[in-house]
Amino acid sequence: MQKEVMFAGFGGQGILLSAKLLAYAAMEQGLEVAWVPSYGPEMRGGTAYCTVVVSDRLIGSPIIKNPAHLVAMNRPSLEKFAPDVKPDGVILINSSLIHVKTKRNDITELIVPANEAAANLGNVRCANIIALSAFAFKSKMVDIDILCKCVEEEFASKPKLIPLNIKAFNEGLKIADTK
């Protein structure tokens, strides 16, 4: 069984990191994984996107036209990629920056005010972690406890940041659970 998710947003929103953490968690679960970033000219213009492919067998094409899920952190990303998502997928919409919805009724919309929730925790930069855990909870793509450990490990060299990011992680779970 193969599942893919595309993380998309502005450069600086932690898109690549969110995607990397998900990939780590999948690898820790013993799954095959590929993390495919955008590094082309569009990235230099400000948008960043990254696909994570997770599978229980060797991954063929790491190039995915129609991902199973989408995490959209800004409006251009939602408008560009939402039509590509496969039916029955999860589309996370960062409602702090995106004031529209997808107009699709064959997918699950997960509305997460990631920036506001992060600001309430004291640092808007952890919005990506809130989105990550909310998405993981809803999509069940990886094990939540393993993912949480991966977040802790990621910040091991900056231990001061661990409590904030764990708080953000739990906040994301809470938001997804009440939706």
Binding site: K20, V33, W35, V36, P37, P62
Partner: peptide, 10 residues
């Protein structure tokens, strides 16, 4: 190619 250089895999 660029994809092999940029991609992360286990």
């Amino acid at each position: 190619d660029g994809l092999i250089g940029q991609m992360m895999e286990p």
